[in-house]
Design a protein around this nucleic acid. Structure first.
Lengths: 319, 319
DNA sequence: GGCCCTACTGATATCGGTTACACGAAACGG
DNA sequence: CCGTTTCGTGTAACCGATATCAGTAGGGCC
């Protein structure tokens, strides 16, 4: 093959570099994928993105990063802009409505959902965690510590993690015959400020709960900030358990007990799944559900002995 | 203009969407920029990237995200891959050598450096912070609290932030006539594990310092972890001041005093600067240097009264 | 009616690779 | 020595949008 060698030489001499635009135009392939997350500033998503990147780079893919800011309109704008720009997309949908799912399907793009689903499940490939199971772990843990008066700060119930963590937690309570007083279950927004405000509201109740389950990391940071500001001792006065590890959770005051889950592994898995799709493995969509784990640190204490159980939820002044 | 209207209609009817690849091929413009950071998992960079994104999206630019993993070879591979794929790049160089700077210039791409410089300054546009000034603030603060025996955990001195923070801190000490005992200044790697190990080494000294300045957030997390593991009271036994705010710093045990700096603003500025470049404002490169601020929380206490100053650095057993 | 200006149409080249095909030359077998 | 394979080379079409240009039609004006 002397011809091939001469070509190599010429490439070298002339400093020839193929033009991705021209290659894409002809081949109809971009070697790029999009990753759309609500907020790259959330350490969970940063870690996920890093996991995606680790695989993508190895396989020669470039990644476009987008923040949906948890805003459905912005998200659908982003998805529209993706047309022709990427080979596929890894998406944590901000809008999980069936309509959004339909739009997504209409875009006819290889898609892997991450952390949340969209429209009817089973129609998309997805990498998820067992939110229900994780929340149930948290519930069992608090119950086993003797707590029966528990506050629950949920995310929006129209999101997968919001709803499933809510359901998983409450299912265990019900199963164990624990009934919550009114005002104990609060819906918030998965954001720090929301967690802060909700915690304040909960503390303002005549009898605050003895433990709180907070359904994500950002809200949990807000809750801790609120408890800190209000000088509420954790876990002395109030036990706290979060969902999603915080990087510095073990250095917090006190070290935070959480439901942890894989993060960069989740991203890497999603990217591998997408690569399979791109390789033409049509098959039917796969849903991969990863397990959570209870990370016990020091923010939960056994419930202080209290007046006998109070099933009808009558308010009592705090001791 | 009825023709224009008919065109609009046809676009609508046929669902026509221009093909970015074809547009790029013809126009030689991609409406994409690359952002290359060492590690998106570092909250500082996550925030910077978000700042970049906020402007980019508004202007219709898409962003490619890359992690250099603080690895010069990987970084130069990334930069090579960028050819023809982006209109410009925002880069936090992992390799700051003149050679890397030269390579970067050879790539003839509109470039904005972020957080670090590369080769000779003044040749690139750059958005930086006043590291020297920030480190000096930290030094003055510790000095004013009465500390004279101070540990310094630096980043690599061949990086801009590593060197300048080191220099800025030590300059103030010198200026105030404070001399550090041997072993007080340690070079580490800007990573959490490095901070952890370095802190352990420092604690193992016959007389540990009464205060520590840690030159970045990741190392600082490591240091805190080490102090936590070794049951060293902060600020009782040891005062700690970090560089770079940590998101949860105020919830730490104790709330961490730090040198803070703008983050997403820095990203936004970098993007705006890049947009100017792309708009053809050749001019000569601009260096924008932002100010840091001292965020006083609770991790630094006045130095405990001690035996009279000990300028020749003789070891003393801890009280 | 003649003139000009604008609005529009249609055709064609171009961006830079990729792919297919046709042709020419050398290599090999029978 | 001829037929066939192999290899190499050259030519041209194509991907889809954009830019240019020539040509045509229509409106307004004197």
């Amino acid at each position: 093959m002397r011809a091939a060698e001469r070509v190599r030489q010429a490439i070298e001499d002339l400093g020839f570099r193929p033009q991705p635009a021209a290659q894409s135009l002809k081949s109809r392939v971009t070697r790029s994928v999009a990753v759309v997350v609500p907020d790259i500033t959330n350490p969970y998503f940063a870690s996920v993105v890093k996991g995606v990147d680790s695989i993508a780079r190895k396989e020669g893919y470039n990644i476009f990063l987008y923040n949906s800011e948890e805003d459905g309109a912005r998200e659908s704008g982003i998805i529209a802009d993706l047309y022709g720009r990427v080979d596929g997309v890894i998406l944590t949908p901000a809008d999980e409505s069936p309509a959004a799912g339909a739009r997504l399907e209409a875009a006819r793009m290889p898609t892997v959902l991450l952390d949340r689903e969209c429209g009817e499940p089973e129609r998309f490939n997805a990498v998820l965690v067992d939110n229900e199971g994780g929340a149930a772990q948290a519930a069992r843990y608090l119950l086993d510590l003797g707590h029966t008066d528990i506050g629950v700060i949920c995310g929006p119930l129209n999101t997968t993690p919001g709803r499933t963590r809510h359901d998983g937690f409450l299912a265990v309570l019900e199963q164990r015959g624990v009934e919550l007083a009114p005002g104990r279950v609060q819906i918030s927004d998965f954001r720090e400020e929301g967690g802060y405000q909700t915690a304040l509201r909960m503390l303002a109740l005549e009898t605050p709960p003895t433990a709180i389950f907070v359904a994500n990391n950002l809200m949990c940071a807000g809750v801790l900030r609120a408890l800190h500001d209000m000088r509420v001792g954790v876990p002395g006065e109030l036990s706290v358990i979060g969902f999603d590890d915080l990087h510095l959770a073990e250095l917090l005051d006190p070290p935070l007990t959480v439901i942890g889950r894989p993060t960069d592994e989740q991203g890497a898995l999603a990217m591998r799944l997408l690569l399979n799709l791109l390789a033409g493995e049509a098959a039917r969509p796969r849903r991969i559900v990863l397990d959570t784990r209870l990370v016990i640190r020091e923010s939960c204490a056994p419930a202080a002995p209290r007046a006998p159980a109070n099933p009808n939820g009558t308010r009592r002044p705090r001791a």
